[in-house]
Amino acid sequence: MQLTGDNLTCQRGGRTVFSGLNFSLSGGEAMMVTGRNGAGKSSLLRMIAGLICISAGRLDLSGGEPDATLAGQAHYLGHQDALKPSLSVSENLRFWADFLGNSDATLEPALAAVDLAPLADLPAAYLSAGQRRRLSIARLIAAKRPLWLLDEPTSALDVQSQDRLAGLMRDHLAGGGMIMAATHGPIGLERARELKVSPE
């Protein structure tokens, strides 16, 4: 399985954010997208997730499921948690597991992986920022998708949760998954390659 970006260009509001970006990522590999503020790290991830139009260039995922689109095989963890406060922790997770992936997945392992199992019946409105973040990470476990697109995944997480997340990412890579993470600092993956995004 391989994700390749060929001469990618992103234009937003008439401004060129980045251009001529080339990269390739194979199964089991992680890539850290770095660059200063406004360089287009988030835009690159959103582009791969199919949330921003590609201005020029090509994106290609080979070796995945033939019928599914690139976005249909990717998880996107953005700045927002995509949780509904009036639904319980397990209802929120159940919905995203059903909607994004296979319907028969059990939630317990995913909730246990982010240490939220005792709160399963609590409305999401009661969660702290870090707990909300962990719940949205749980959806990466509950629905299986090969490509993880993580935008500042460690924000709002304490040290212990960051370690847990690193462990989950290592498990994902060991299972042949791919990770692209936009980040300013280390996220606990030793063998990650670095992709520097810079304007022009």
């Binding site: 005792p118 709160l119 609590l122 409305p123 009661y126 702290s128 304490d158 212990q160």
Partner: peptide, 14 residues
């Protein structure tokens, strides 16, 4: 009480 439960759980971990 449920809010406290969520909070205690967060504190118990650290």
């Amino acid at each position: 009480m449920r809010l406290i439960q969520a909070q205690e759980l967060a504190e118990a971990r650290t």
